[in-house]
């Protein structure tokens, strides 16, 4: 039986500056550990309980809502400069439970559990009746559009051949009939104009990622027109990432070294993140 008074929790306001600091630390943690998809930004703090922690510090038990931005997780753009995905583009929200430790004025994440889900079709069409919805990422038309866009990108450039890392987003546009896709790529040790068998190309040790937007449109001649624009990011030296106590590093780091598209079971751009123990 512990001596002294039983330690209880306190409930500061959700918009209290200290609560917001804890929530921002949580969002930063999400974006550093998302395996694929887009960076998320804080939208609302749903609830907060602050537990004293022995021998020192406090643990913030937080429920927060996030929104998807237009910055891919491999994009080095600071979150503050990323735009929130708008409702008419078919927004995606995140729902997260966090335990964040505050000790010596520093916040660190003890545990995280997040699920993301796209807005409902009904809600999208309320604000924009004709806007296309998100398409399943494993749809054959989506996969074909990505392959065509990537081939066009590689054909247009000199230097490294870029491999597909993941398909991030896709929509079927009705008029003109088109498939709009967004996907991440990475540089390989092959030269783009000399590639015979892309399967034999290897990702560079010093990773160089890129992010592409493509549009494949059926034309009147029965063929298709392909438009693609890619942004290639600066190379990323391989650095070990610090992990919270009890967290597993393996499955949560971005898909570095893998060229396989990362899809959710439903083929939709939903992501989940579960890290560390839930105990306070």
């Amino acid at each position: 039986v512990p001596h002294g008074p039983v330690l209880g929790y306190r409930e500061p306001a959700c918009d209290d500056p200290e609560t917001e600091q804890a929530a921002l630390a949580a969002v930063d943690y999400i974006n550093r550990h998302l395996p694929h998809g887009y960076k998320h930004i804080l939208n609302q703090i749903d609830s907060v309980k602050v537990w004293p922690r022995r021998p020192t510090g406090e643990v913030f038990d937080l429920e927060i809502d996030t929104l998807e931005t237009t910055c891919h997780v491999l994009d080095p753009t600071p979150l503050a400069n990323c735009s929130v995905r708008q409702l008419k583009e078919h927004a995606v929200e995140g729902d997260c439970d966090f335990n964040v430790l505050k000790q010596d004025g520093q916040f660190s994440v003890l545990s995280a559990k997040c699920d993301s889900s796209p807005d409902s079709a009904e809600d999208v069409h309320k604000v924009c009746p004709d806007c296309p919805l998100l398409a399943p990422l494993n749809d054959s038309r989506v996969v074909h559009a990505v392959e065509a866009a990537l081939a066009t990108f590689n054909a247009q450039k000199s230097g490294s051949y870029f491999q597909l890392v993941e398909i991030s987003r896709a929509q079927f546009v009705p008029l003109p009939a088109s498939v709009s896709v967004e996907f991440a790529v990475a540089a390989t040790d092959c030269v783009a104009k000399e590639v015979v068998d892309p399967a034999k190309c290897n990702l560079l040790a010093e990773k160089q990622y890129g992010f592409c937007k493509g549009m494949v449109t059926e034309n009147v001649a029965g063929g298709e027109d392909v438009a693609v624009t890619c942004t290639v990011f600066q190379t990323q030296p391989v650095l070990p990432q610090p992990q919270p106590d009890g967290a597993e590093a393996g499955p949560l780091t971005p898909a570095q070294g893998s060229a396989a598209p990362a899809l959710s079971p439903a083929g939709l751009p939903a992501a989940s993140l579960v890290v560390g123990p839930r105990a306070v």
């Binding site: 306001a13 959700c14 918009d15 930004i41 939208n43 749903d46 929104l67 807005d119 809600d123």
Partner: peptide, 29 residues
């Protein structure tokens, strides 16, 4: 004798403090 001090009544409804959930920064979906 004990006199009741004059306390002015607040004008209009007293604002309700809702500590949670916090403000929506962008939009709700």
């Amino acid at each position: 004798k004990v006199a009741q001090p004059s306390v002015p009544a607040p004008e209009g409804p007293v604002p309700v403090v809702r500590p949670c959930p916090g403000r929506i920064r962008y939009f709700n979906i």
